[in-house]
């Protein structure tokens, strides 16, 4: 274990670390809003809510923003002037949970593979990830089943773990190493790592939801005519849920859902405008529309099935858009649809 690369900081001294980070970066982290948490800009230590369970929107919003201006155009001349809208600010994301880091790694594969997306890449390149291992699993999470949590092993610049009165700080990259230059921190001891492992073992036992992933993609793929889709879409529901509302919340809060819509807006001169991309959802009727009024997912059943299959890794996104077990979709569904229950039904359990 790389003790030499790890440090600790007392919780009541955390403000010192934050101040250090704020010198170089705009910092975003979890803040409390009512009963829920959301990622927002952090200026002072008291805004930070590191004991959060889950956030409404995942940190996806910083890299693949819900509404993004791609470029501006000016129609005054025949040769339209197009100017890319760039964002080059250095930012730091503090307190991002393991499932969300894993989701980002999948989005990396997706947006930085074939046809790189410069907007995503720019934001990703300019953002430092200071991850935070989970303290308590959310009632809805099943990251443990998906191999994406509750503790993190990859994808971070720095990793924090709550080990009682202090945080253990592990370094995951050169960037992480450099960030800690110029701040006085305690070196981590073997006892600190023992405490970390101890907490991990306790945490694992506290999960309330599970999913058996063995052959699950294959099972889902072979069950596209299963009666569960009809129950989800039209009547009956699954394991106590009501049928789907097609409200689209599940896909918007999903950390790996990336589908977007693109449109142009003009200002009132009708000569200047912008091309915008906005998060879209396969749960909406409009999503499947084609020319001349056609639609290839006209029924709710088709749409909820598509989303579930996508999360189980059998849609076009493959593993890149599949579930990381954060549980946000279950938490936010007004009718109580639960992907872990759907998986059970598909398995015939």
């Amino acid at each position: 274990m790389g003790n030499e690369k790890a440090f600790t900081i007392e919780k009541n001294d955390f403000g010192r670390l934050l101040e250090h980070l704020l010198k170089k970066y705009r910092v975003f982290g979890p803040t409390q809003r009512g009963l829920d948490a959301t990622f927002n800009e952090i200026k002072t230590n008291d805004q930070l809510f590191l004991d959060y369970v889950s956030t409404v929107l995942p940190p996806k919003k910083f890299f693949h923003p819900p509404r993004l201006e791609l470029f501006s155009f000016d129609l005054h001349q025949k040769h339209v002037k197009i100017e890319e809208i760039k964002q080059d600010e250095k930012t730091l994301l503090l307190g991002i949970h393991p499932c969300d880091v894993h989701a980002l790694l999948r989005l990396d594969d997706f947006f930085l593979g074939e046809f790189q997306d410069p907007y995503y890449q720019n934001r990703r390149k300019n953002t430092v990830l200071v991850a935070l291992n989970c303290i308590e699993p959310s009632d809805y999470a099943f990251c443990n089943s998906m191999g994406t949590g509750p503790f993190l092993e990859e994808g971070y610049d720095l990793l924090l773990t709550d080990i009682g009165t202090k945080y253990l700080i592990e370094i995951g990259s050169d960037t992480g190493q450099n960030i800690l230059k110029g701040i006085q921190l305690e070196n981590a001891t073997t006892a600190d790592f023992t405490e970390k492992n101890h907490r991990f073992k306790l945490l694992e036992k506290r999960f309330k939801r599970f999913i058996n992933t063995s052959w699950l993609s294959k099972i889902a793929q072979e069950n596209i005519d299963h009666e569960v889709w009809e129950r989800l879409g039209e009547q009956g529901g699954v394991s106590g849920s009501l049928p789907c509302l097609s409200c689209g919340q599940c896909s918007l809060v999903c950390p790996t859902c990336y589908c977007y819509d693109v449109y142009d807006t003009l200002d009132l001169s009708l000569k200047k405008g912008k091309r915008i991309r906005e998060l879209d959802s396969c749960q909406l009727l409009e999503y499947g529309e084609v020319a001349q009024g056609g639609n290839f997912r006209p029924n709710r059943k088709d749409r909820i099935r598509h989303w579930m299959l996508c999360k189980l890794g059998v849609a076009a996104g493959g593993q890149q858009s599949s579930c990381v077990g954060c549980g946000r979709c279950i938490r936010t569904c007004p009718v109580g649809i639960d992907i872990t229950e759907v998986a059970k039904v598909l398995r015939g359990e």
Partner: peptide, 12 residues
Amino acid sequence: QHPVCMECKLKD
């Protein structure tokens, strides 16, 4: 014509 939930979620 999509639901209010879309705009609501986009506002976090």
